[in-house]
Design a protein around this nucleic acid. Structure first.
Lengths: 223, 223
DNA sequence: TACGGTACTCGTACGTCGTACGATGTCAAC
DNA sequence: GTTGACATCGTACGACGTACGAGTACCGTA
């Protein structure tokens, strides 16, 4: 059929395809596995071939954030508070779907133009909902900040994780734990789940934002 | 005095000292400069000498987050809403002081026991303020999530940065910009500063949390 | 049919990274 | 003086990102 060195380039190397494969590679084998060589191997190509579609490894990572942004789900047919809440849930959802990639990429700017349309639609909804432009940026940023921060913390494993926290174990012989509040808090937190804690913050933030844009004087300290 | 290969080990190599130097190195020369070799050079030591105090480069990064946590400033003599607000400001402040390090380290778990006391004191303030234990975790996490997320976004440069945003430039010949809402929003946002936008979110979040812990039924969706 | 150019692929090689391994040096206790 | 623990270091290995230039396939034009 084929000579041993030959292989038709059936899924012809493509920026799009490279990015998708990179994401899959990370999902399957962890962040450390994302190497130009490993990635090339997965694609049955030479490492250097990738460089005709992606200028550098750094650019590849930027591209990764692009495809993750594309996975965000935004339903514009909602009042802005619910839309914003769903937007935050969507961010967390993407993070949980691609934890290692989110970590790699969650802390780098979204500079690619492809990431703007989703933002536009969210900000648009805010303004259509009657929020003034200057409040819209603040509101949007607050939502993204909370969602990103929470997702990152969740991925890493919370410091305050009832299951694994060292706060309950070390040197707390029996009574009089070294960190009494944490001890008590973690005991009670063990019964409530991650979902609920995330939603607690979502609700609180949206509630606060709702009141702020309704009566706030400026993007600064109200009152 | 000294043979040319000799050098007295005056600031004897120490985990503490290594971590401090690593942080300084990153602050001065960027994240890419943090190499076992470069770091060793700064310390006038051999790369391998570091490994007697730090098991690996990964562990060194974990240690870095430890020293950054130590820089958090917490004033316990305040009502919890103001304390929490100041805690968030402190997180952002550390991030701005060590942007590259925060980026490197901001997305990895705080698993070292040294990071617990600060948390204990914040959570303690929440509970002393009358917040129920299960609400305390949620409240704490929400605050950290927002502050971390905001600080990260700020470090990277916001996607929605009035100065540099591509939203106002590309293909928007003159009128009818491709992304009308963003265009409008960025124009007006140019007048408000970063400080104010951060504080807007802080105020909104704290306000929302305040109301949630006051009347919320559980850590979940409160009606 | 021939040809020139463009787009893509690849092999080789360089410098740098993290770090395993074992030798060397230093010093306190006996 | 001898011993042993501990800290330091020199060397070396494999893997990394990627610069460079040589191939190879394909296309429009003559």
């Amino acid at each position: 059929m084929f000579s041993e060195t030959e292989q038709a380039p059936p899924p012809r190397l493509t920026r799009e395809w490279i990015l998708r494969s990179a994401l899959r590679l990370i999902d399957d084998e962890g962040a450390a596995a994302l190497t130009m060589r490993r990635l090339a191997a997965v694609l049955h190509a030479s490492p250097m071939s990738l460089y005709h579609h992606v200028p550098s490894r750094e650019a590849l990572l930027d591209g990764l954030s692009e495809v993750m942004v594309a996975e965000l789900h935004i339903d514009s047919n909602q009042a802005w508070p619910e839309l914003l809440a769903n937007f935050m849930r969507s961010i967390r959802s993407v993070a949980r779907r691609h934890p290692d990639a989110f970590r790699l990429v969650g802390m780098r700017p979204l500079t690619t133009p492809g990431s703007l349309p989703p933002i536009e639609s969210v900000v648009g909804a805010l303004m259509d909902g009657g929020i003034e432009p200057r409040h819209a940026v603040s509101t949007f940023r607050a939502a993204v900040a909370y969602a990103r921060g929470y997702a990152l913390a969740e991925i890493e494993g919370f410091t305050l994780d009832p299951q694994t926290s060292p706060a309950t174990s070390p040197d707390a012989d029996q009574d009089r734990p070294a960190l009494p509040h944490l001890d008590q808090v973690l005991r009670s937190a063990a019964t409530s789940d991650q979902e609920a804690i995330f939603e607690f913050g979502v609700a609180a933030l949206i509630d606060g934002l709702h009141r702020a844009v309704r009566l706030g004087p400026g993007p600064g300290r109200g009152s």
